[in-house]
Design a protein around this nucleic acid. Structure first.
Lengths: 261, 261
DNA sequence: TGTTGATGGTTCATTATTTGAACCGTTGGT
DNA sequence: ACCAACGGTTCAAATAATGAACCATCAACA
């Protein structure tokens, strides 16, 4: 791996739980030498990608990422375009809607919307990384990815997040086959034990999924009727978003979605 | 300059006017060898910082910047925290309000808000890079920066953007002295000939400005009364934003702002 | 149909940069 | 006064970056 890759990998060490990291810890987390780490960080700091703060001189993500994100959004209004649809979806279903995109081997939540209706709802956060095997969004994407990619993404051991998380690759693949046949993934308590969710894949051009649109519901509120409603609304919203992105729903998927009950 | 710096500099070649760039053009713009450029880009692509699209295989900013920006905002709600204040400022003044942050040697607009009042207004865009010498925001920041930094930032020749742009460093420094004495910068037609604007510096900790808050008005609508109103509203809004950021207005500046008419 | 000139991408010997153990100066706790 | 951890620096050795020349492909054009 090149130097640039190492530097960029350092950025992935920042998480919501660990928004700022000191030099030594950075070296420890990344496995790089402290001196190397320091050089990479100062180089990124000079470009504003990270910044150093406080008396402890800890590092955190810098303001440049805001500029880059704004630039990306004006060029490719992925998030901004989908936001209104996402809000409408949350309103129509009365539940939490969220949009995730694939970034290499990660599935990242880039937007979400709460419904004003209920006091209890499934909470979400931006920039959350979703596990492929334990979320409906993850499964929705996997089901519409070439087999070689699926294999690569499921190569690492599948963590058992709750009592009912499917951790057996073979059984998971059977599940994906089902998702592929229906055009829609559904999980209950596999990620967080009190949340249930439904998701559909999102496409741009071609038959390969680039992300997923999902709705999450507290388990105690889910009913068959509600589930049916959510499925319907999801397919409508997904079609709309793909259209806004200037993409196309694969005809095969459109057919599946029309047949969905 | 290290390899990482070169890679990150490539990101700055993306602008709103030029959202996607081919390999050869990238090499031309950056002055790097095509092979080098290619390696840096593919390395960044593997981390999602850029992506390649279309039959022409052009490069553009990737989805990872969205995730990083979201992460940065949850850690340091710079933009999100300021947004409501910015909107209130736009409403109160009836004009376009904008917030810019310093990123190394650049001044970047990271948020703006339009007033619903008028049909004509000064338009803005996210991720705009403002010239230090020709905008009130730029001057507001410069006026509250250590002299050594000012010298560095004004080292490059000052472009004459309109008829009345000040391009003489010595005269500009006199102007900055005035801004420093008043706590507020005002320009008319120095950036775009039909826009006039007022700006105040923003602080975090210490006496060094980190950005600026500005209001832009079409020249034909500006009156002394309006200008006074804008100054007042600006200082109030700036104080509020700095407070939301968990920073502190330097006492000397608070005093200036109270004395402003 | 062959020519030209542009594109994206690759190769590999040369070269310059990255690397990391050991170091320094500070800080905070005991 | 001591120790341990911190951020940061040094410099010879090791490694990765570099770039001229190279393909393959495409579009325009005669």
């Amino acid at each position: 791996m090149g130097t640039v890759g190492k530097a960029l990998d350092l950025l992935d060490l920042f998480t919501r739980q660990r928004a700022q990291v000191g030099l030594s810890e950075m070296a420890r987390l990344s496995g790089l030498n402290k001196a190397t780490c320091h050089r990479l960080l100062t180089e990124m700091e000079s470009r504003g990608l990270v910044e150093q703060i406080g008396p402890a001189r800890e590092y955190r993500l810098g303001p440049a990422v805001l500029r880059l994100a704004a630039l990306r959004e004006t060029a490719v209004p992925t998030r901004d375009a989908a936001m209104p649809v996402l809000q409408a979806l949350a309103r129509a279903t009365g539940e939490t809607a969220h949009l995730s995109l694939r970034e290499g081997d990660k599935l990242v939540t880039i937007a979400f919307a709460y419904a004003p209706t209920h006091a209890t709802k499934v909470m979400m956060e931006d920039a959350d990384i979703l596990p492929w095997h334990a979320t409906s969004s993850g499964q929705a994407v996997l089901a519409f990815l070439p087999d070689t990619e699926v294999t690569a993404l499921l190569a690492r051991p599948l963590r058992r997040l709750t009592e009912v998380t499917e951790t057996d690759p073979t059984r998971l693949r059977l599940r994906l086959k089902d998702v592929r046949a229906r055009g829609c993934a559904e999980t209950a308590g596999t990620f967080e034990s009190d949340a249930q969710s439904v998701a559909v894949p999102l496409f741009l051009n071609g038959d390969s999924a680039v992300g997923a649109l999902g709705v999450a519901v507290p388990v105690n509120r889910m009913t068959p009727d509600r589930q049916t409603l959510i499925r319907r609304e999801l397919t409508v919203a997904a079609t709309e978003i793909i259209d806004l992105w200037g993409g196309q729903v694969p005809p095969a998927v459109t057919a599946l979605w029309q047949r969905l009950t």
